[in-house]
């Protein structure tokens, strides 16, 4: 990630360890999200307990990363790009941990959705929305590892696609629940699930902004395009 070496090689090792933990956190979060989506699309209730249990590993790793960052700041007194790297690592770790929480939350709602069989009610595919967000997460984590602000900004711009899909699914689910009250319970859980997927996409764009700050020293100056400024009131 960084060509120039510090005079203190221990400093380089500490920063490398921070990156290693971010990579691991990213991998765990991606796995959790992929499993939650797969379980949702297949109504696979056997995966749920494991997904919920695995969230603890993400929480523990985030906590360890925070401790590492605290120690690094105290012992190495990072400045300039190094300081940005430590701060950004902590912020990204927090976002990945939250993304893991959303994956867990999706898993916990699958049983209710399965009862109503509402995954495929929308014309806009949940599968498609999930895959779009998965790709964004993968792309933004690669951008972080490569300190690639351009790729990060591509992810940042893609959030509008996810917002648009979410908006459509939201409205269709409201329509369904209005027309067929027996689907209100499952539909409500589905609303939360789509919102969770959309929030994971938001965090991917949040990570993209942090990469921009890491590389350039500034957050993106433009306003991120939005598909919907309302609160999905249908």
């Amino acid at each position: 990630m960084e060509d120039t070496q510090h005079i203190s090689s221990a400093f380089d090792k500490d920063l490398a360890e921070l990156n290693r933990k971010i990579a691991k956190l990213g991998q765990l979060t991606q796995n959790q999200f992929a499993r939650a989506l797969e379980a949702l699309l297949n109504y696979d209730l056997t995966q749920i307990d494991e997904i919920v249990a695995h969230d603890k590993r993400i929480d523990e790793l985030e906590s360890k990363l925070n401790e590492d960052a605290l120690t690094l700041i105290a012992l190495r007194s990072p400045l300039a790009a190094d300081l940005r790297r430590v701060i950004v690592a902590v912020k990204i770790a927090t976002m990945l941990e939250r993304m893991g929480d959303y994956a867990k939350n999706i898993a916990k709602r699958i049983e209710w959705v399965a009862k109503g069989d509402v995954v495929d009610v929308s014309n806009t595919s949940i599968k498609s929305m999930g895959e779009t967000v998965q790709h964004m997460v993968q792309q933004v984590l690669e951008a972080y590892m490569n300190a690639d602000a351009d790729t990060a900004m591509q992810v940042w711009l893609r959030d509008v696609e996810v917002d648009q899909m979410h908006k459509t699914i939201f409205q269709e689910l409201l329509q369904l629940m209005g027309d067929r009250p027996e689907h209100v319970t499952a539909g409500s859980h589905m609303l939360f699930i789509t919102k969770n997927i959309e929030r994971i996409g938001d965090y991917a764009t949040g990570i993209a902004e942090q990469i921009c700050f890491l590389v350039n020293g500034f957050m993106p100056e433009e306003t991120r395009p939005k598909a919907d400024e309302t609160d999905h009131k249908g």
């Binding site: 990072p78 400045l79 300039a80 790009a81 190094d82 020293g217």
Partner: peptide, 19 residues
Amino acid sequence: IFTRPQHEQTEAYISGKIG
């Protein structure tokens, strides 16, 4: 200067980097 220096020589010096 200490958060986002513009010149790479400044960055290297304040970060304690080689070359």
